[in-house]
Deep mutational scan, measured.
Amino acid sequence: MTYRVRIENADGEVVTIEISADELREKGLTLEELLPPNARIVEVEEVEP
């Protein structure tokens, strides 16, 4: 499974990243732990691999 994640950074700019569930598991991280300081998740969407 892959996630498309929209993130708002500290400057108010919204960027989109895609990350797979396998990648998260391998790194032992959650989506929140990948965020840079002062950023927030705006939207998470599951996409087909």
Rank of each mutant, 00 (worst) to 15 (best):
Ala21Tyr: 09
Glu23Val: 10
Asn9Asp: 08
Glu43Met: 12
Glu13Trp: 09
Glu33Pro: 00
Glu26Asp: 11
Val5Gln: 00
Leu31His: 00
Met1Ala: 06
Ala10Val: 10
Asn38His: 10
Ser20Asn: 08
Tyr3Val: 03
Glu26Phe: 13
Asn38Leu: 07
Glu18Cys: 11
Val47Lys: 04
Ala10Phe: 11
Glu46Pro: 06
Asp11Tyr: 10
Ala10Thr: 08
Val5Ile: 12
Glu23His: 08
Lys27Gly: 06
Pro49Tyr: 14
Arg6Trp: 14
Val44Lys: 03
Ala39Lys: 03
Gly12Ala: 02
Gly12Phe: 03
Glu18Gly: 02
Ser20Phe: 06
Ala10Gly: 09
Ile17Phe: 14
Glu45Ser: 09
Glu45Cys: 12
Thr30Trp: 03
Glu13Val: 13
Glu32Arg: 09
Asn38Gly: 15
Asp11Lys: 10
Ala39Met: 09
Glu48Gly: 14
Glu32Phe: 11
Glu48Thr: 14
Val5Arg: 00
Ala10Met: 12
Leu31Ser: 00
Glu8Phe: 11
Pro49Ile: 14
Ala21Ser: 10
Arg40Gln: 06
Glu45Val: 13
Glu48Val: 14
Arg4Leu: 09
Thr30Asn: 06
Gly12Asp: 02
Lys27Gln: 07
Pro36Thr: 04
Pro37Gln: 08
Glu45Tyr: 12
Pro36Asn: 03
Asp22Cys: 11
Arg25Cys: 08
Ser20Glu: 05
Glu23Pro: 01
Leu31Cys: 05
Asn9Ser: 10
Asn9Ala: 08
Ile17Gly: 00
Arg4Gln: 03
Leu29Ser: 05
Met1Ser: 06
Leu31Phe: 07
Glu46Ile: 15
Asn38Gln: 06
Thr30Met: 06
Val15Phe: 15
Met1Phe: 13
Ile7Lys: 00
Val14Asn: 05
Val42Glu: 03
Leu34Pro: 00
Ile19Val: 09
Glu32Asn: 09
Glu8Lys: 08
Val5Met: 05
Val15Ala: 07
Leu34His: 04
Glu13His: 11
Glu48Met: 15
Glu23Gln: 07
Ser20Asp: 08
Glu43Val: 07
Thr30Ile: 05
Gly12Cys: 04
Asn38Ile: 02
Pro36Tyr: 03
Ile7Ala: 03
Glu26Ser: 13
Glu45Ala: 06
Val42Lys: 04
Val44Gly: 01
Glu32Cys: 09
Gly28Glu: 04
Thr30Val: 05
Thr16Ser: 06
Thr16Tyr: 10
Thr16Asp: 06
Pro49Glu: 11
Pro36His: 04
Met1Asn: 06
Glu26His: 12
Gly12Lys: 04
Arg4Pro: 00
